[in-house]
């Protein structure tokens, strides 16, 4: 177990160092987030629909599509100089490779969300202060869910043509559940509803995370082996 986690951390650290050096995908995702929020801000009619009703969906649509950029690059950087082959020849377990990629993707998406949330508050003037910690819990649980599935599909499509198109097509149907849970929980939090109304959605998100991290761990070796 210790070796599994050490190897996973080695992979994750390498991915994060590479991302920090190049910053291409991270900058693209952050700029994308800012642009989408700007477009939604100016593209809605505030007199037709109340901001508080629209805001949760906008937040999660933005985070989902920004995360796609991260997930697309997760395994593409392993195609450089055939590094994926090197990883598969090495004693690195497939499970460590998956967990390492999952950790790096969570870090990457977390940075995008950390930038996106204040912009969301700024543009939509929603009261997140009183519900900040429960909101962070919702974001964290939903992010683990869709990044765990996305990491698996990212490995699956990396050696296909049009991988960048294939990933959203395969992934989005699997994101319907966590997105629904996250939007419902966020709407209740921003609407000032009691936390007891949110706990059910949090439990569903946690259950989704447990199931899909376990399923992805089981399936991952079959997606990368020749």
């Amino acid at each position: 177990m210790r070796e599994l986690l050490e190897q996973a951390w080695t992979v994750a650290r390498k991915d994060l160092v590479l991302e920090f050096r190049t910053r291409t995908a991270l900058l693209s995702a952050v700029v994308f987030t800012a642009l989408v929020l700007t477009v939604f801000n100016f593209g809605r009619d505030p007199t037709a629909v109340a901001t508080i009703d629209l805001a949760p969906s906008i937040l999660w649509v933005t985070f989902t599509f920004a995360a796609m950029l991260a997930l697309n690059r997760a395994f593409q950087l392993e195609l450089e100089n055939g590094a994926l082959e090197g990883l598969l020849v090495s004693p690195l377990s497939r499970h460590s490779l998956y967990l390492g990629k999952l950790l790096a993707n969570l870090g990457f998406v977390g940075v995008v969300e950390a930038v996106g949330l204040p912009l969301f508050v700024l543009f939509f003037d929603v009261p997140v202060g009183p519900v900040l910690f429960p909101l962070i819990a919702v974001i964290a649980l939903a992010t683990v869910g869709f990044v765990s599935v996305g990491t698996l599909f990212s490995a699956m499509v990396v050696r296909t043509r049009f991988a960048e198109l294939m990933l959203p097509v395969l992934l989005l149907p699997f994101l319907l559940l966590p997105l629904t849970y996250a939007v419902q929980a966020t709407a209740r939090l921003l609407g000032g509803r009691p936390l007891s109304e949110v706990s059910g959605w949090l439990k569903l998100l946690a259950a989704y995370d447990l199931v899909f991290v376990a399923v992805a761990l089981l399936l991952f070796p079959h997606t990368v082996d020749e």
């Binding site: 070796e3 080695t10 590479l18 100089n81 082959e85 090197g86």
Partner: peptide, 27 residues
């Protein structure tokens, strides 16, 4: 120890960083 058609090295890491990464993976 494997030497294939491709180097398996990460272009944005230094030679030494690459070696340390692979040494860690090989235990």
């Amino acid at each position: 120890g494997w030497i294939g058609h491709q180097s398996h090295l990460y272009g944005h890491l230094s030679v030494r960083e690459n070696l340390l990464f692979w040494a860690a993976l090989y235990g």
